[in-house]
């Protein structure tokens, strides 16, 4: 059950993002459900398992998108590693842990992805529209993290983190 959930969650996240949330954008931004579940996993399991899980989930997204394979894998792996460092210092029952964790993860993910694209795509432009889009994603991810953290925490305590 544990492994089934760990595989199904990223798979379903990408499916929901591509067919549902892509039509329901906020300032042009699609929420990153994959990043949200990786953040939750890292918060509950710690940095090293978080990195491996984040990397594999990011790789699945890269393979689906079919471009610059490794960017999302590396970015999400590093984000999970950093967020996972908080694991021993936070009170995981608190819903705000998930909220703050997801917002921080979105910002860190944006910075890493921007750096990776600046290195791989020389004519990459960062303008105010990009920042508005990122703002939209921070709010979207943050709002979704509240109900999702309550659900994920319950499921994770039962099946994922025993």
């Amino acid at each position: 059950m544990r492994y089934l959930l760990l595989v199904l969650l990223p798979f379903v996240s990408i499916l929901l993002e591509s067919i549902f949330f892509s039509r329901l954008t906020l300032w042009g931004a699609v929420p990153d459900l994959l990043l949200i579940i990786i953040t939750f996993y890292a918060l509950l399991r710690g940095s090293r398992p978080g990195f491996v899980y984040g990397f594999l989930c990011g790789l699945l997204e890269d393979l689906y998108l079919g471009r610059f394979i490794g960017t999302n894998a590396l970015s999400k792996g590093v984000v999970a590693f950093i967020i996972g460092k908080l694991e021993v210092n936070v009170f995981k029952d608190n819903i705000m842990v998930g909220f703050i964790g997801v917002i921080s993860a979105t910002v860190v993910n944006f910075i890493i992805m921007t750096l990776l694209f600046l290195v791989t795509v020389p004519d990459m432009v960062i303008n105010h529209n990009v920042l508005i889009n990122m703002g939209g994603q921070i709010i979207y991810n943050g709002l979704l993290s509240l109900p999702l953290y309550i659900w994920y925490y319950k499921v994770a305590r039962k099946y994922i983190v025993k």
């Binding site: 090293r48 990195f51 491996v52 689906y64 079919g66 471009r67 610059f68 394979i69 490794g70 590396l74």
Partner: peptide, 26 residues
């Protein structure tokens, strides 16, 4: 973690949009 990072850094530039075909995994 080290192997994953090295492999990613090697693969990213090789998988730009210019390539002729996608891999079997994709």
């Amino acid at each position: 973690i080290l192997v994953m990072i090295i492999v990613s850094v090697m693969i990213i530039p090789m998988t730009s949009t210019d390539r002729q075909d996608n891999t079997a995994f994709e």
